[in-house]
Design a protein around this nucleic acid. Structure first.
Lengths: 219, 219
DNA sequence: GTCTATATCCAGATAGAC
DNA sequence: GTCTATCTGGATATAGAC
């Protein structure tokens, strides 16, 4: 998996080519869907012959893997770069909004990260680790907002994913589900508080700490 | 779209063959995924040559369309056949559970119905109408349970879909998300009641009536 | 309805020359 | 690293005989 090791004397040029290849693949994916990416088409656009791609990528799945890594990295940086409000619950909402805008602006990356749409493809451990870091970050923010029960973390992420996927599959880029984001989080936090005997205390005073993910498995 | 009109003297035999073809296609889809269905493979298993399938189906997409119709019909009958409790909110939960068990036992049908996974395929109006009937039925039940705001219907269906998809993509057939079904509905109904000034009144006394779907578009 | 034969197109991957 | 040439396999769809 992943790109072929370089023994090239001009690693800079080689790296540039590889990035060009990846960028081209993204372009095709945006036009024709992820499954529509073929090595032939990539080579065509990049000005190479199809077999030449094997100097950069060991197989088609390795290309997908590299793309997965890029997508995870992009999501991670976007989401960790956002300025979060001090209130941990408002922070969660802002984080969710940021994540949503990511998949809205990068639907193909979202598809690659969150859906299992390509038949034989599983991300390598290396590429996946970035996605895991993203998840850990989300769990941290939820924890700070008082969502400490792993089951509640599962519920929260599922709700988010449900809203997003309903919106983006039925009315991409629209508002029909998006506008309920805040209401849903309000509903969720009310539910959280309702479970606790001292709801209001738990709200604000939570230390940030890195949890080990809700219950192991990833989204 | 749809199957080719029959001029066959033995329509019963022809119909049987067609059903055999569809059943075979389902079998392949269960083994190799929906995209893995090829006319060659269907023909091979059914004991015909690939071109002979065109006596039953106008194109591959027509095959998918017939499958879509079958899936929608199966879901509709399963979900409308279930014995619902008198309490409209308990009824909604039971309905949701029934829907979930459908996609759990028929993951491929669920994929065809609820995900847009096949590149060039859109269900025909005819096949789709069954799915619309299913949706109308769900909206009716929600309405009876006091979920009358179209926006709330959207929220509810998105939550359900989120739970289901989290469960079935991350841990197919498992319990990790499934066990929160009741809690999530409790949360949702509490949210609904919190919006109304007369929450408890609205709970039980609702007449069943067919609504025109939340806001038009389907899931 | 079913067949053979074929047209046409696409894919991923490898061998070996330069 | 890049090329040509090729292997191997797949697909949908059509023509025309029986």
């Amino acid at each position: 998996m992943s790109v072929t090791p370089s023994t090239d004397p001009r690693p800079a040029g080689r790296q540039a080519r590889l990035e060009e290849i990846l960028a081209t693949a993204w372009g095709i994916a945006e036009e024709q869907g992820l499954a529509g990416v073929s090595l032939h088409e990539v080579a065509r656009r990049v000005g190479l012959r199809q077999p030449s791609l094997y100097a950069y990528v060991d197989s088609k799945n390795c290309l997908y893997d590299a793309m997965f890594g890029q997508a995870a990295q992009a999501l991670l940086t976007q989401v960790t770069t956002v300025d979060l409000p001090d209130d941990p619950r408002q922070a969660v909402v802002v984080m969710a909004r940021s994540m949503w805008s990511f998949v809205r602006e990068n639907p193909v990356k979202g598809q690659l990260l969150f859906e299992r749409t390509i038949p034989g493809f599983e991300p390598s451990a290396e590429s996946y680790s970035v996605a895991v870091r993203y998840q850990g970050w989300v769990v941290d923010k939820l924890f700070a907002a008082g969502v400490t029960d792993p089951g509640d973390v599962d519920i929260c992420t599922a709700l988010m994913a449900g809203l997003i996927s309903a919106q983006e599959t039925n009315e991409p880029g629209g508002e029909r589900w998006f506008r309920h984001l805040e209401a849903v989080f309000g509903m969720f936090f009310a539910y959280i508080d309702g479970k606790s005997s001292t709801p209001t205390v738990a709200r604000k005073e939570r230390a940030t700490s890195h949890a080990t993910g809700p219950e192991g498995a990833p989204s």
